[in-house]
Amino acid sequence: MNERTDPQTCRQTRAPRARHPARALFWRLFAINGLVFTAGTFVLALSPATVSSPVLLAEIPVLTVGLALIIAANALLIRKSLAPLDALTTLMRRVDLLRTGDRLTDSGNGDLAQLIGTFNEMLERLEAERSASSAYALAAQEGERQRIARELHDEIGQSLTVALLALKRVVDRAPEELKDELCSAQETVRASLDEVRQVARRLRPGVLEDLGLHSALSALSSDFSQASGIPVTREVDSGLPALSGEVELVLYRIAQEGLTNVARHSHARHVELSLREEKGQLTLRIADDGRGGVRTEGAGIRGMRERALLIGARLTVDSPPGGGTDVRLVVPPHAVKES
């Protein structure tokens, strides 16, 4: 119902209707064409030029020039009116919900302002929904990682420890001809136990919970260098502000994924890992001297972008061919403050 009752006048008044963009655009084009042809008619009526019947050859250039001017004026006015549609189409093609803040500004065309505003509102709604769904999915992922890490540490780790102790007792009582084989088995079990502990530590960074972000990044760098053989130069400001658990986890996971990508794809010889604070803004940087040339973003980089959205941070990846890869995460001041 588009009618409502005014309690004071006891009369029914119609609610104002929203302006329809297509109808408004139709009337705008209609007015432009009408204005152009009306102006052309007045010019012909007031000018000394006349048209004979039949048309003389000398009159044809005059008519041609007049028609060309009318068509050109009409084309320019219509093109100006429809220019925001080109910008809107370009934005539709490049929009990515993992890169927030890409909006179309109103260029003063009143007929398309409602369409532009509606599209921007749709983008804001989709970005909010994407951020909420990503937060839920990543929270579930972290919970599953903690469960698996706990089972690896408490069950498989304990079982391997028991097996290692049993082998030690067997080695102590075994004859000399069997000791070498038993010692080899003992070392295999010990190596498996170390691998299980490393996997559990990657799945659930206990050092982050116990000792904080600074120590966690230090341990992450050491483990990376030990596993990959690539040295890491680490620079972390000692006077970092107090961070919430969510921000610390996002910073740690993005640093972890960035180093993992370096080991898998970059063929680098050196990596720089830094975390600096300036004017309340945190910047995490992972830079390598590898081959660079990252053209398409894989699951790792898109996963980092999803994590960045959780705290309102901005992630950029600069990877010129042959110039290494530079990953930066900039956390705004409002997200740095511990809640």
Rank of each mutant, 00 (worst) to 15 (best):
V331E: 01
S184D: 06
S133K: 06
R305F: 09
R202A: 12
I32P: 02
R285E: 08
Q198I: 13
S159Y: 05
L91W: 00
I311D: 00
L243W: 10
A22C: 02
T89P: 01
D6S: 09
E277D: 14
G34I: 04
T325R: 12
D180I: 15
G324F: 07
T38F: 13
L259Y: 04
S192F: 04
S225L: 04
D237S: 13
Q114V: 12
L77I: 05
Q158N: 13
P16W: 07
R285D: 00
S53P: 02
H270D: 06
E121P: 01
L211H: 02
A216H: 03
G117Q: 05
A39V: 13
S228V: 12
I60N: 00
G40V: 06
R125T: 10
L220C: 05
G245A: 08
S274Y: 04
A185W: 01
A174W: 03
I156T: 14
L104E: 00
K337E: 08
G212A: 03
S47F: 14
Y252L: 12
A24Q: 10
L104W: 00
L57N: 07
G229A: 07
L217A: 03
L76E: 05
V250T: 08
V317W: 08
V336F: 11
N261V: 10
E177R: 14
L77A: 12
L259P: 03
I286A: 09
M92F: 08
L56A: 13
R314K: 15
T325G: 14
T283D: 00
A137V: 08
R147G: 07
G143H: 09
L104Y: 01
G298P: 11
L243R: 03
L76G: 02
V43L: 15
D194S: 14
R99C: 01
L115A: 03
T325D: 08
T9F: 12
A72P: 02
Q114E: 11
L329C: 07
R94K: 04
E151W: 15
H20L: 14
F119C: 03
E248G: 06
M304A: 10
V95Y: 05
A73H: 02
S274M: 06
D289Q: 07
A263V: 11
D237Y: 09
G229E: 03
V170C: 01
T5R: 15
P54T: 05
G322P: 11
L67K: 01
S107R: 11
P84N: 00
F42V: 13
V330A: 04
L152G: 09
A137P: 02
A132N: 02
I32L: 06
V62L: 13
K279N: 14
Q141Y: 12
E257A: 08
V330Q: 04
D194N: 08
Q8S: 15
S244T: 12
L56P: 03
T50G: 14
A39I: 12
R93N: 05
G300V: 13
D6P: 11
E195Q: 09
S266D: 13
A200M: 01
E306C: 11
D172G: 04
A227D: 10
I230Y: 05
G312E: 08
L309I: 10
D96H: 07
